[in-house]
Amino acid sequence: MGLLDNESIPRRQMTLFFLIDKSGSMDGSKIGSVNDAIENVLPIIGEISDENPDAEIRVAALEFSTDTRWLYDEPKEGKDFIWQKVTAEGMTSLGEACRELNKKLSRSNGFMSSPSGCYAPAIILLSDGGPTDDFESGLAVLKNNSWFKSAIKIAIAIGDDADMEVLKQFTGSLEAVIKVHNIDALKKMIRIIAVTSSQIGSKSSSATDESKQKQVEEQITEAAKDVAGAESAAAPAPSKQDNYDEWD
């Protein structure tokens, strides 16, 4: 007998959120690539979670266009997450998506448990345009949320029409926004960002949440330099052919 027997010690939890713009302009290769990339990265996140003795990574996904919808009503482990293909149509209600995310970044009726025993979440926003609703008031609500304040926040701007100012406001810095110009870059950056955020976000260390955000920003900025058609919004690549949008 002792204090250890009878009870297993749970791993700490980290939740990875995908916020997916599925407005009409995402139709075709953009939304197809998002579906492929996330579906393919989920087993990798499952592996990162299984190999991490300190943390269990769970995944939640919110699609937004005219309305918003969570793919599941609870976060699921990466290896258990069965991806449901997202189809594009409608407007870009990013403000409403912020409000919806705020509801779930909560312990009561939300996806979060006690802050004790949790790591800050990681949130990845993918968008190809600008909000068509009241984004500012939605973001204002979200910015008061303690989980959001502590979260790793990264945005992927899909193409030249993405509203960089909005994505900067969401993540808190231009360094956290990666711009992609073609299908291949989109798929690669979704994978790189999801994996990097999961690895750093679920790491047990004395790193503060702020420094985890910086670590992710630095690593994905560096990685984007090797991906043709991807660039950090804070340090755009020199003008060359693969800086032009190519989505067909």
Binding site: M1, G2, L3, N6, E7, I9, P10, R12, S113, S114, S116, G117
Partner: peptide
Amino acid sequence: SDGLDDTYGDGELLENFYMNVMLE
């Protein structure tokens, strides 16, 4: 100290831990 509730959370698992302490 917070090392304990960061391990067990602040709900049933933490209470189970202290029940085991009482047994000891």
